[in-house]
């Protein structure tokens, strides 16, 4: 085996070890964060919260599940979406479902 093949073998082995480490890290982190997840769930129950706080930019991206049909229009019927977070977070599926078939 040449030095080239050995080097590539080590490189690939290193990547495979890192790939394995991500799985191990995920499993360990999940176990370690079980208590804080429970605490967050209790806080949600106590405060009767409905959404995760992923963005505080606009009401419909702060409370994603409470967005309504009119959020796209905001202040007047031709207003363009001007909040960047709105282009990353999709509208809640229950809004789209409620539209039903139009044809």
């Amino acid at each position: 085996m040449t030095r080239r093949t050995r080097t590539f073998g080590l490189f690939l082995l290193g990547l495979l070890v890192l790939f394995g480490l991500t799985a191990a890290h995920a499993a360990l982190s999940r176990r370690a964060s079980a208590a804080s997840l429970r605490a967050r769930a209790l806080l949600v129950r106590r405060l009767e919260l409905t959404d995760l706080c992923l963005s505080t930019e606009a009401n419909y991206t702060r409370h994603l599940s409470l967005a309504d049909f009119h959020t796209a229009f905001q202040d007047h019927p031709l207003a363009l979406e001007h909040f960047p977070s709105g282009s990353l977070l999709g509208p809640p599926p229950h809004l789209r479902r409620s539209h039903g078939r139009l044809d």
Binding site: D68, P91, P93
Partner: peptide, 23 residues
């Protein structure tokens, strides 16, 4: 209008939507 808990949960299936312009 009524929002059910199931719907709140399903909302987060749609985050980082491919249809979102940036992605």
């Amino acid at each position: 209008r009524i929002i059910l808990r199931e719907e709140m949960l399903r909302t987060y299936d749609a985050v980082f939507s491919w249809r979102g312009g940036i992605l």
